[in-house]
C-alpha cells in the first residue's frame, strides 16, 4: 500500500488531475448540461489551443526559462498566414510561412537569451513588444478573413474526432516522447536543475536552450492556425495575453517555475482545468466579472495546496529517513 502511495504521489500531475476531477463532479451536480458528451468534447476542443501551447511552454519552463511573447508570436503568425492567404491563395505557402515563422520567432527568443544572457523574462518582454508591433505593421490592424475550407482545421472531424483534439493528441504524444524518451529531454531537465552543473558536464546547454524556445514557437504556430480557423480569420489582437493563461496551466500542472521539475501531462490537464472553470461559470450564467476573481482564487489555492503538500512530503521523507537511521542504529 505504501509502495502504491509512493508511486502515485510521485506523479507530479496527480494534484491537478484530482482537482480537475473534483471540479468536474461539482459542475455536473450543479448543472445538468455539463456531463454531456458534446459539452465534454467542446471543453476539450476549447482547451486545445492553450493546451498545445502549454506543451511547448513546459519545455521552456523546465529549463528554468519562460516565454511571455507567445501571445505575440500567435498574433504575428496568424497575421502572416491570413495575409499570405489573401494575397496568393496558396495554402502550402501560407502554412509553411506561418509555421516557419513561428519557429523563427521562437528561435530569435532562444538566441537572444543564450547570446546576451539577459534573463528570459526581460528578453521575451522585449520581443513581445516587438512582435506585436511587427504584426500590426504587417496588417495595418485590418481583420483578414480566411477561406471557408480552413474551418476544417478548427471545426472539422476526422474519424469522428474533432481535428483540434487530434492535433492536441499528436503534439501531446510527441512532446511526451521528446521529454521522457530522448536524451534531449534529459538535457532539458538537467539544465533546469542546475545550468551551472549542466555546463560543467559539457551538455550542449546553448543548443538545447534555443531549441526549447523553437519548440515553444512551433506549438504556438500550430495553436495559431487552429484558433484562426475557429474564429474565421484574423481578428484584432488575437492571442494577445494568452501566454499568462498558458503559464498558469503549466504551473497548475505541477511544473516548477524554477525549472527541472514538471510534466507535460500536468500542463495539458492544467489547460483543461482552466477551460473547465470558464465553462462552468458560463453554464451557471455567472456575472462576467466574477470570472477573474474565481480564476485568481483558484490559482492561489492551487499554489498553496501544492506548497503545503510539498512541505508535507518533504517532512514525511525526513521523518522516514530519521526512522530508518533510528532503526539501523537501534539494531547496531
Amino acid at each position: 500500500m505504501d509502495r502504491f502511495k509512493q508511486t502515485f504521489s510521485s506523479k507530479k500531475w496527480l494534484a491537478i488531475a484530482l482537482a480537475t476531477l473534483a471540479l468536474g463532479i461539482a459542475l455536473s451536480l450543479v448543472s445538468t448540461a455539463f456531463l454531456t458528451f458534446s459539452n465534454i468534447q467542446s471543453v476539450l476542443v476549447q482547451a486545445s489551443v492553450t493546451a498545445i501551447m502549454a506543451v511547448g511552454m513546459t519545455f521552456i519552463i523546465l529549463t528554468g526559462g519562460i516565454d511571455i511573447s507567445m501571445g505575440a508570436i500567435l498574433f504575428f503568425t496568424s497575421s502572416l498566414f491570413a495575409k499570405i492567404m489573401v494575397e496568393t491563395g496558396s495554402y502550402s505557402m501560407a502554412f509553411t510561412a506561418a509555421i516557419g515563422c513561428a519557429c523563427l520567432l521562437g528561435a530569435v527568443n532562444g538566441l537572444l537569451v543564450v547570446r546576451f544572457k539577459i534573463i528570459p523574462l526581460i528578453t521575451t518582454l522585449a520581443t513581445y513588444t516587438m512582435y506585436r508591433g511587427m504584426a500590426i505593421h504587417l496588417t495595418g490592424a485590418q481583420n483578414i478573413p480566411v477561406p471557408r475550407e480552413m474551418g476544417f482545421l478548427g471545426n472539422g472531424k476526422l474519424m469522428g474526432i474533432p481535428v483540434p483534439i487530434l492535433l492536441l493528441a499528436i503534439v501531446f504524444v510527441l512532446g511526451l516522447y521528446l521529454l521522457n524518451k530522448t536524451r534531449f529531454g534529459l538535457y532539458v531537465k538537467a539544465i533546469g536543475n542546475s545550468e551551472q552543473s549542466a555546463r560543467e558536464t559539457n551538455l550542449p546547454v546553448n543548443w538545447v536552450t534555443i531549441l526549447v524556445y523553437v519548440i515553444g514557437g512551433l506549438t504556438t504556430g500550430i495553436a495559431a492556425l487552429i484558433l484562426l480557423a475557429r474564429v474565421g480569420g484574423l481578428q484584432s489582437g488575437i492571442g494577445i495575453g494568452i501566454e499568462f493563461t498558458v503559464i498558469a496551466a503549466v504551473v497548475l500542472g505541477g511544473t516548477k517555475l524554477s525549472g527541472g521539475s514538471g510534466t507535460i501531462v500536468g500542463s495539458v490537464i492544467g489547460a483543461v482545468f482552466l477551460v473547465l472553470i470558464d465553462n462552468g461559470l458560463n453554464l451557471l450564467n455567472a456575472s462576467p466579472y466574477i470570472y477573474d476573481i474565481v480564476k485568481g482564487v483558484v490559482l492561489l489555492a492551487a499554489v498553496i495546496i501544492d506548497k503545503v503538500s510539498f512541505e508535507r512530503q518533504a517532512k514525511h521523507l525526513l521523518e522516514q529517513k530519521a526512522l530508518r537511521i533510528k532503526s539501523t542504529s537501534g539494531v547496531a
Binding site: 462576467p288 466574477i290 470570472y291 477573474d292 476573481i293 485568481g296 490559482l299 492561489l300
Partner: peptide, 23 residues
C-alpha cells in the same frame, strides 16, 4: 511567510484585483 513563488502568486492576486475592480 508561506514561501510561494512571487510570479504565480502575484498573477493570482492580479486576477483577483482585476475582478474586484470590474465587479
Amino acid at each position: 511567510y508561506c514561501g510561494l513563488t512571487p510570479f504565480i502568486t502575484t498573477m493570482g492576486t492580479q486576477l483577483i484585483a482585476r475582478g474586484l475592480a470590474f465587479v
